[in-house]
Design a protein around this nucleic acid. Sequence first.
DNA 1: CTAATAGTGTCTATAAGACAATATACT
DNA 2: AGTATATTGTCTTATAGACACTATTAG
Lengths: 239, 239
Amino acid sequence: MGVELWPSVDVVIFTVVDGALKVLLTRRSESSSAFPGQWSLPGGALKKYVDEVDTLEEAAALELKRKTGAEAPYLEQLETFGGRARDPRSWTVTVAYFALLPHDQIHLEAGKGTEDVMLWDVTSKGVKAKLAFDHKDILISAVNRLRSKLEYTAIAGYLLGKTFTLPQLKSVYESILGESIPEMSFRRAVSNSDALVKTNKKECVPGRRPTTLYRFKKGAKDVLFFPKSMVYGKGKGGR
Amino acid sequence: MGVELWPSVDVVIFTVVDGALKVLLTRRSESSSAFPGQWSLPGGALKKYVDEVDTLEEAAALELKRKTGAEAPYLEQLETFGGRARDPRSWTVTVAYFALLPHDQIHLEAGKGTEDVMLWDVTSKGVKAKLAFDHKDILISAVNRLRSKLEYTAIAGYLLGKTFTLPQLKSVYESILGESIPEMSFRRAVSNSDALVKTNKKECVPGRRPTTLYRFKKGAKDVLFFPKSMVYGKGKGGR
DNA sequence: CTAATAGTGTCTATAAGACAATATACT
DNA sequence: AGTATATTGTCTTATAGACACTATTAG
C-alpha cells in the first residue's frame, strides 16, 4: 500500500480562429517516463498548486494562465477521469476543466517554447495528433459538453471578442454544432433572448453590405439563449 | 510538502418512498477526528478501493453496494469537490457520484448498524440534518442535477420498480420538479417518447378505477423523453 | 446595372396547454 | 346512483422554419 495517489488537473482550452474551433495542446518532453514527445492537454499535479490555491478551480485557472498568459473568461469543471489503465505507471486521477476564450487573448509565448504549445483544429472526433494518456477521451468529452451547452446557452460569446457581428456568432454556432441554423430562427432567438446590444459601429468589408456589431450584456452569456430548450410552464400553447 | 492527498469517493443515493424523494446518509462515528457523530454522504478514501477496482465508477459502485446491498441501476459522476476549506485537517478532494434506485432494492441492514444509515427527506434546499464537510453543497448539486435531467430524460424510471402506473410516474416528476405537469401534455410526451410499454396488468385500489401498469423498454430510460427539449432541425414548424 | 451579403415580413403546420368529456372501478 | 380517479378528445394559440422579399455596399 505504498502507492501515492495525487490527483492532477488538466484544462481543455478552446478558442475559435476564423470560424474554426481549436484546442491548445502542449508537447511532453522527450525525457518523460510516460508518453515522451507526445501531445497532451496542459495540466499538472495538484501537488504543484496546493500551496498557492484554495480550490480546484483556482488550480485550473492558474494552469490556464501559465499556458496562455490570460485570465479565463469562462472556466467550468468537466469531469474527473481516474483508473488503473490511463497511465502505465500507476492508478491515477485527473480532474478535467474546460475553458473558452477569444483567440486574441491567447499568448502562446507565455509557455515554454513556442514549438511546445500549439492550437490544433478540433472536430467531434478529436484532433489529428495522437494524444498522451486518455487525453483523447477527455477532449471528446469536452467537445460534447461544449456542443450541448451551445444548444441552450450563449457561451459561444466567450469565444469571440468584445464585439462581433451576428453572422460571425451564427457561424460559430454552426461550425461547432455542425449544422446550419435557419436565418430567421437565429435572429429571432437572439432578439428574444435580450442578451445582445447593438453597438453603433459597423464592420465594413469591401464588396459587402456593412454588418452591425453587437456585444453581450453583462452576465448574459450564461443565460438561456435558444427558446426551444424550454420546459413545462413556459410553453407556447395554452391560453 | 509532506502532505498526502488521496481523493475520496462519495455517493449521493436517491430513492423515492411514497412519492417523496429521499437520500441515504450515514452517521460518522463519535471517535472521528472531524465532524464526529454528524450525518454525511456515504463514501471513503479511494485508497481503500484502489486494489479492488479499475475505475472511479467501480469504486463508487462498490461503496453503494456496501451501504445498500444493491447493484446501482443508475450511477453517474456528479462533480469533484476539492479545496482547503472543506476539511479542517487538510486540503482534500472528493469525487462525488449520484445514484438512483427503487426503494425496494435498498437493504439498509447491509451497512453497519441500522441507526447509522438512514433515508432522509430531501428538498432542493437539502435535508433537515446538518451535514459533515461540504456535503450539503454536494447534496444540493446532486438534487439540481437530478432535476435538470428529469426535464429531458426518463431517468425517473430508475426510482420506480419494474412496473408502475402513469399517475405514479407523473407524481415522481412533479414532486421532484416541484411543479405540476398538465395531464394531457404528460401523456402525450410518454406516448411520443415510445419508451414505455403497457403491461396487461392493472393496479387495483378499492374505490378507484384500476390503473394500467407500464414498464420501460430496454435502454429507454436514458433516452429523450419530453419533447420540448428539442433543438434546431427537429422543430415543429416549417413545411 | 450586377454581385454579394445583411437583414426583414409573412404564411403555415405543428404541438402545448386548457378544459370538457368519457370510462371504470368501489360503495 | 354517487364518488373518485383514470384516460381521452377537441379547440386555441404561440411559434419554428420555409421562402420570398428588401437594404446596402463595391465595382
